[in-house]
Every structure is written in structure tokens, then in C-alpha cells.
């Protein structure tokens, strides 16, 4: 719908190049949003993803600068491991100290960003420092789809299957619905929540390496403020902020929608200053709709229960 309206007003929007740009821009937010979905489903939140992305992206730039011949696959592994460590720090603080994830990850948001600043200083690494094969990951296409977008789709499918069909995945929903009941039921809550944070970290690490491939420069401020878009994407995609419901595919669609809106606004030549306000409106609208739907469902349930008595 949005796509059609925009395309009719600005025909440039649906050219192959336009679609490709759209998919490329969405890829990174999609990957971050599915990591965020895992965390939010357990009734937590990870606000530090933007900082993790920045830190790992700068790490990637450094790796290529220091070891020019490094195999690309190794960079992916190192980036994801780095992300996992940062995610594990969040997870450990949240599970051991039993403090709301919001506060912990707000703290680590600033700490990781500070470390990134201290490490990078004024240094920036540019695409020229990285091998061409690495940059071409985000320019080469198969049937019109950029390689990294295909990678993102693979990740979405993989995580979706784990979440929907494995015990660990189902446990996340149980924990989000009612942590106390989940614990009573014998679900290893601590381990699962920790796992969700580590997974979010790994995905942020992956997104960071892709970011380094997609964008020219990585430096101290890479990924600043991204956490808002990511939380918005997950929430818009139907992941309930109270935990316990939502799907990875929904979060991915939310991310795609959000990116499309931003691109559409640019294509329609709406002032770029409106973008952040729109993200805010979307978050509030999404949680309001979610709330109204659940209230409605609760009322219907009550009515039908009463009838059955």
C-alpha cells in the first residue's frame, strides 16, 4: 500500500536500483530487530544494540586495517564472537543482579559507546581500507537480491525455526508470559534469558560486519541512536513489549516497513527532520493498538466464558 502510493508519486522509487537500496538499508535493521525480538519476547529489552553495532563495526574496520589479508569468513566469526561477549555482559548483569534489563542496557549503551569513542577517538576506517571482495558483498546481486539481503533472509528463517519449533525457543515465550510460572515449571529461566541476550549480541555483531561492508566509514559514532529504530521495528512488527508474544518474521516485516517509510519519505521529499518524529509516533501507535487488541480479546474471552457457565 505504502509502496504503491510512493511509487506512483515518485516513479524512481521502484526502479531496480531503488528496490535494491531499500533492501540494503533494511537488511541491517532486520537483523538487529530479530535479535531484539528474542529479547523482548522474554519480557526484557536490549537498548545497547546500537552501541554494540558501533563497537563491532569499528573492530571490523580495525581488523582489516591491521591484518590486510585476513579471510572474510574469519572476520564474520570474530565480529559475531565479539558481539556475543558484549551481549553476555548484558545478560549476566540482568540475570544475576535481577535488575530490569532497561536500566542495565541503558547503562551499557553508554559504556559501550564510551569504549568505542575512547578506542576510535577521531579515527575512521573507510571502505578503501577493506578488500574489494568484502565490499562487494553488499553490491553483488543474485536475481536482483543483494547478497547480504539473502544472508539476512537466511538468518530470519533460521531464527524463526528455532523460535517456533525448538524447546529453547518455546521456553522464551513461556518466560515472557509469566517468569514465575516458567521457573515453577522447571524452565531454566536464567540460562534462557542469558541466551536471548547473547543471541541479540551475536546478531548485532553480524549486523555490524555487514554495516562495515555496506557503508563507507566506520568510526566512533557508528550506529548511534539505532536502538530506537530497532525497538520500534520489533514493536511495530507485533512483538508485544510486555513479552510473551510476537514472531521473528513479524519483527523483520516491521523493520522492512519502517525502512520503507523512511525511504518513502525521502522519495516524497518530506523534510528529513520528520523522520524521528514518525518513528516515535509508530512506536506509540504500535503499543496502543497492541494494548487495545489485547483488552478487546480479554473482554471477548470473559463474555464467552460467562456464556459457557
Amino acid at each position: 500500500m505504502l509502496v504503491v502510493v510512493t511509487a506512483t508519486i515518485n516513479p524512481l522509487f521502484l526502479t531496480p536500483q531503488g528496490v535494491k537500496d531499500l533492501l540494503l538499508n533494511a537488511t541491517i535493521v532486520v537483523i538487529l530487530a530479530i535479535g531484539q525480538a528474542l529479547v523482548i519476547i522474554t519480557r526484557n529489552v536490549d537498548l545497547s544494540v546500537g552501541s554494540i553495532l558501533g563497537l563491532v563495526a569499528f573492530g571490523t574496520g580495525t581488523l582489516f586495517a591491521v591484518y590486510p589479508g585476513i579471510p572474510i569468513i574469519l572476520v564474520f566469526v570474530i565480529g559475531m564472537a565479539f558481539g556475543a561477549v558484549l551481549g553476555a555482559v548484558n545478560g549476566l548483569l540482568v540475570t544475576i543482579a535481577k535488575v530490569p534489563a532497561l536500566v542495565i542496557t541503558l547503562g551499557t549503551l553508554y559504556i559501550y559507546r564510551g569504549v568505542n569513542n575512547a578506542w576510535a577517538g577521531g579515527t575512521q576506517y573507510f571502505a578503501g581500507d577493506r578488500p574489494r571482495a568484502f565490499s562487494s558483498l553488499s553490491t553483488d546481486t543474485i536475481f536482483g537480491f543483494p547478497l547480504i539481503t539473502l544472508l539476512a533472509i537466511a538468518v530470519v528463517v533460521g531464527v524463526a525455526i528455532v523460535l517456533a519449533y525448538t524447546r529453547a525457543g518455546r521456553d522464551l515465550y513461556a518466560i515472557g508470559s509469566d517468569p514465575a510460572a516458567a521457573r515453577l515449571f522447571g524452565i531454566p529461566v536464567t540460562r534462557r534469558v542469558l541466551g536471548a541476550f547473547v543471541a541479540s549480541g551475536v546478531l548485532a555483531g553480524l549486523a555490524a560486519v555487514l554495516y562495515a561492508s555496506r557503508f563507507n566509514a566506520v568510526g566512533a559514532t557508528t550506529g548511534t541512536g539505532l536502538e530506537l529504530d530497532v525497538v520500534a521495528a520489533a514493536v511495530v512488527g507485533g512483538v508485544a513489549i510486555f513479552g510473551g508474544s510476537g514472531t521473528v518474521v513479524g519483527a523483520a516485516i516491521g523493520a522492512l516497513l519502517l525502512t520503507t517509510i523512511t525511504s518513502a519519505l525521502t522519495a516524497l521529499r518530506v523534510d528529513k527532520f520528520w523522520q524521528q518524529a514518525i518513528v516515535g509516533v509508530l512506536i506509540i501507535a504500535a503499543i496502543s493498538v497492541d494494548r487495545l487488541v489485547s483488552l478487546n480479546r480479554a473482554r471477548k474471552l470473559r463474555v464467552s466464558e460467562a456464556r459457557n457457565v
Binding site: V45, L102, L228, V231, A232, V235, I241, D271, F273, W274, Q275, Q276, A277, I278, V279, G280, V281, L282, I283, I284, I287
Partner: peptide, 17 residues
């Protein structure tokens, strides 16, 4: 928490506008 994350973005966005 969710509401004020939303208005955090919204109000800052208005400031930009």
C-alpha cells in the same frame, strides 16, 4: 517504559522539525 521511549523519539523529532 515503552510510551516514553516513543515520546523520547517523538519530542526530539518535533524539536528537529
Amino acid at each position: 517504559l515503552a510510551v516514553t521511549i516513543g515520546t523520547l523519539a517523538l519530542y526530539r523529532g518535533f524539536a528537529l522539525v
